[in-house]
């Protein structure tokens, strides 16, 4: 049900129309807990759509997907979808997705485009795909209009050096990192090795580079001394050796990508432990 739209007014009109059941004329119940903005450069579009598909039902929200394309002529190309889910006896709830292609110079001024589309009084989350261009206009603008920034540092090149500039935004916006969330099953396991782990000198992490750096940073910042890191690349966190001894494997299955993002969307407060881990990882 996608229609090409060129202005905010047209988007609003289309949304109002789609919120009514075409067959019965009855309005769907609109229910939202947040506005979720996703900044998705072209190379991330496919991966982002997969995650959004799993997210919509769990977190009814208005999702605004921003796809920047600075290399073509100025303009705005938008499409909107209203997806419905059953909720209760005979009722349907509607969640909205607005996809915006920011063409030419529009890509440099995203805040002015998303602000009229934000749901009033609800929290605004920004999911930034890839490494944020710190100090550059689109990133700076959007950080100032959102309540929470969600990144996945697994997507960042050049770790751990790339973490160095990240703490600059900690005082401006609450930050979540999905790579950090992916270590959440392992951290209690490592904590359970206390007090022996208090003197750890070296860890070997089999997982992504981001997971390895963050776990090392976490241990350094919490324990207050250096912890040497050896990293073995794997697509997921498969093991942690503490001074040569494997830590017990955590119970349960690792969560799906949509669940990881979903969990982060439920958190609203600053995570000081993560912030310290990033600083110590860099």
């Amino acid at each position: 049900m996608a229609t090409a739209l060129g202005s905010i007014a047209e988007i609003d009109r289309e949304l109002a129309q789609l919120r009514t059941d075409a067959e019965t004329g009855e309005p769907f119940q609109r229910t939202s807990v947040m506005t979720h903005i996703a900044w998705v450069p072209a190379e991330w579009v496919e991966a982002a759509e997969d995650v959004l598909a799993g997210l919509a039902e769990r977190h009814p929200s208005r999702t605004i997907v921003l796809v920047p394309d600075a290399d073509i002529g100025d303009g705005l190309e938008a499409s909107v979808d209203v997806e419905t889910f059953p909720a209760g006896e005979g009722r349907q709830i509607a969640v909205e997705t607005i996809r915006l292609r920011l063409c030419g110079s529009r890509a440099a001024a995203p805040a002015s485009i998303v602000q009229p589309l934000l749901l009033p009084d609800l929290p605004v989350f920004l999911r930034w795909r890839g490494l944020p261009p710190f100090s550059e206009s689109p990133f700076e603008q959007l950080v100032d209009v959102v309540d929470r920034l969600i990144v996945d540092s697994t997507e960042w090149p050049g770790l751990p050096e790339s973490y160095a500039r990240f703490p600059e935004v900690f005082d401006r916006v609450v930050v979540s990192d999905i790579a950090w969330a992916r270590t959440s099953r392992w951290r209690p396991q490592l904590a359970s090795l206390w007090p022996k782990i208090g003197n750890v000198k070296r860890i070997k992490v089999t997982g992504t580079r981001a997971q390895a750096c963050l776990l090392a940073g976490w241990l350094r910042s919490r324990l207050g001394h250096d912890v040497e890191l050896e990293h073995e690349e794997a697509k997921r966190l498969e093991g942690v050796d503490v001074d040569g001894e494997p830590a017990p494997f955590p119970p349960g299955d690792p969560p799906a990508p949509a669940d990881l993002l979903g969990d982060e969307l439920e958190r609203f407060t600053r995570d000081g432990v993560y912030e310290e881990a990033v600083k110590a990882a860099a």
Partner: peptide, 20 residues
């Protein structure tokens, strides 16, 4: 994992963990 055992309160790794 219980949250009450006294020695664990001194464990700096427990800070910020979302334990059920």
């Amino acid at each position: 994992m219980t949250e009450t055992a006294e020695p664990q309160l001194e464990n700096p790794l427990l800070e910020g963990l979302h334990l059920q």
